[in-house]
């Protein structure tokens, strides 16, 4: 790929705690261009840790290192925290799983969106409010002036997630990390949120890193898929070629999904092998 937005090479995350060392992410390498790349894996596979390591949001006990972690030509790990704040939220945004927990319950949703704008741009409050309302409209919220004054408990899950997306988009980022953005949503609402994200990638040329455990969804939505197991990327595939997976873990995952119209008495169960967790070769 030419000119990736993000380039990661041999990313490692280790947690040092009283209970010893946990090597949570091992030698993860990938590039992200103007496309939708998914990271798939079960809980505990390290997929969310990768997302958080990219924006340096991990707790202090986590030690992150990488041969390369460059975003728009800047080496993220060597930036000062001050410089990092110009990137986090401004150039790289993160959409979290559940809008109920990530919105501030005692602040109107519109103020939260304009706060995101004020944090990065020197503008008046009135100007920020105007931009926030425009942004709410652009995520297909009807009557954005009215919604601006609502509190998080007054909006539905789907609308809450669109408000989160509006908040993440208002500083005009080059890349979005979406950590299970639709798992708390209904299938019908999910389609709306996905088409919104899809539109952003197409129209604004944003790079989207989509962290999920939902294989069906990723298969139809993303361009490429990285499959993580026990902290390592065990396989990388084009989403359209997921059925050609070689690794036993990916094959096992695909086989364990129930599918409409496919009568099976029993679903096949993942038969975990010790071998899957052994260290893979580092990229040179």
């Amino acid at each position: 790929m030419t000119d990736p937005i993000l380039s990661v090479k041999n990313l490692n995350v280790r947690y040092f705690s009283a209970r010893g060392l946990l090597h949570a992410v091992r030698n993860v390498s990938f590039d992200l261009g103007r496309e939708k790349v998914a990271i798939i894996g079960e809980s505990g596979s390290g997929k969310s840790t990768v997302g958080r390591a990219l924006v340096r949001l991990l707790p202090d006990i986590a030690k992150v290192n990488a041969d390369r972690l460059s975003f728009e030509g800047k080496e993220l790990l060597s930036l000062s925290e001050r410089k990092m704040q110009d990137i986090r939220g401004r150039r790289i945004s993160m959409i979290l799983q559940d809008p109920k927990f990530s919105l501030n319950p005692v602040m109107s949703v519109g103020e939260q969106v304009s706060e995101a704008y004020l944090a990065h741009f020197k503008v008046s409050r009135a100007e920020a409010k105007k931009r926030a309302i425009e942004q709410l409209a652009s995520v297909q919220i009807r009557d954005p002036e009215h919604v601006y004054g609502l509190y998080p408990h007054e909006v539905s899950g789907g609308m809450g997630q669109r408000i989160m997306i509006a908040m993440m988009l208002i500083p005009d980022p080059a890349m979005i990390i979406a950590d299970e953005p639709t798992s708390a949503l209904d299938v019908t609402v999910r389609a709306q949120v996905l088409s919104l994200l899809d539109d952003l990638v197409q129209r604004r040329g944003i790079g989207l890193l989509f962290i999920s455990h939902d294989l069906n969804l990723v298969q139809s939505f993303c361009d490429r898929v990285l499959i993580m197991y026990a902290g390592q990327v065990v396989e990388e595939l084009r989403a359209s070629e997921l059925h050609l997976a070689q690794h036993d873990y990916t094959k096992g995952l695909l086989a364990s999904l129930p599918r409409i119209g496919q009568r099976r008495d029993r679903l096949s169960v993942l038969n975990r092998k010790q071998d899957w967790a052994r260290d893979l070769e580092r990229q040179p």
Partner: peptide
């Protein structure tokens, strides 16, 4: 997780046969 989901759904099917159970299942 989906891999665990398969195990639990299989368990429900086995139990239904074994114990002659009737289920009402809510799912999205």
């Amino acid at each position: 997780d989906v891999s665990i989901q398969a195990e639990i759904l299989n368990l429900f099917k086995d139990l239904r046969e074994e114990l002659n159970l009737t289920y009402v299942l809510v799912s999205h």
